[in-house]
């Protein structure tokens, strides 16, 4: 029997990855990084890590000369990292790189994307598509196999964002008929798209929404943008959605303040684009919601 330092270090690294992924799921922090829809694949990753960790444990103590017994036969030189070689500087570097994200992951709380990132994404209003009618988020998900996990009780998810067709239709009707348009998280993307495609149809309607304050270059001092990030897969692919709001006191709100705002919809010009604007009648500062992001809406086929 011989103690293999390399294998020992690798086992530790794998063990730390296991802990990191378990912690992400148990604490619910995973939602601050990826769309909850993709939780399952990340749970699978945690499972694979656990298996690899146990396989690796058995490599720490191996009989001498059996380092290569995994079916390559004699004379096997892949030139890749078998962990039997000497410990040197480049190896130290590579293990440090692997540990780096785990350290920052445990050391720092996940941040919510803010207006700095928003300003890097390009103009909100010129991204809004007016010509093509494109219900951006409408999908029919025919298989229901992914759904059950969301009914489990440990992490309540507002934004699991699977709606049955029936619910979806109902929500669309509400957009047309309700007294106040409620920009709820589970339908945000769809409503947003509708409002921007046909801003004129909604003039005079009352709207209620919450979001963080973002001041895009070029907005007036009595205007601000009430914004949300929409996450397709992970935070890195976030796109910014926002409605222009207009009220005298807009000036006094700093960027990244969360506001709940109510007002009447109107149309204004932004460059060459016609965009909706909220003439705010009431507003209040709120805490950042536990789920700051919105997700593309998926509908379930009623089979």
């Amino acid at each position: 029997m011989q103690f293999h330092l390399q294998h020992f270090i690798k086992a530790i690294v794998l063990g730390v990855f296991v802990l990191f992924f378990l912690d992400l799921h148990l604490s619910g922090d995973i939602m601050k990084y990826i769309n909850p829809k993709y939780q399952n694949i990340s749970k699978l990753a945690a499972g694979i890590f656990i298996v690899l960790f146990f396989v690796q444990l058995f490599r720490i103590f191996q009989r001498k000369g059996k380092g290569h017994h995994h079916g390559c036969g004699p004379g096997c030189h892949h030139g890749h990292d078998h962990g039997n070689e000497q410990f040197n500087l480049s190896r130290l570097f590579s293990y440090s790189v692997m540990i780096f994200p785990i350290i920052t992951g445990f050391a720092f709380e996940p941040a919510t994307l803010n207006s700095t990132i928003a300003s890097n994404k390009g103009s909100i209003f010129s991204q809004v598509n007016q010509k093509e009618t494109s219900p951006l988020n409408e999908t029919t998900l025919t298989d229901k196999e992914n759904i059950d996990i969301y009914s489990s009780d440990h992490v309540p998810l507002v934004n699991n964002n699977y709606l049955s067709n029936e619910e979806y239709e109902k929500k669309l009707l509400l957009l047309e008929n309700s007294e106040t348009i409620q920009m709820q998280e589970d339908i945000f993307g769809t409503y947003y798209e509708e409002l921007n495609e046909q801003p004129k149809d909604y003039v005079g309607r009352t709207i209620k929404m919450s979001g963080f304050v973002f001041k895009e270059d070029g907005v007036n001092s009595n205007q601000l943008v009430v914004s949300r990030f929409m996450i397709t897969h992970c935070i890195a692919d976030a796109s910014i959605l926002g409605l222009l709001a207009e009220f005298k006191e807009a000036n006094s709100f700093k960027e990244d303040t969360w506001l709940e705002i109510e007002g009447v919809l109107d149309v204004t010009k932004y460059g060459e684009y016609e965009i909706p604007v909220i003439k705010a009648t009431s507003w209040k500062v709120i805490d950042e919601p536990t789920e700051p992001y919105v997700y593309p809406v998926l509908t379930l086929a009623d089979s």
Partner: peptide, 15 residues
């Protein structure tokens, strides 16, 4: 923000 985006790319890619 950088740290969060960095980790989210990793968490997405590692599986």
């Amino acid at each position: 923000q950088l740290n969060t985006i960095f980790l989210s790319i990793l968490i997405e890619a590692i599986p």
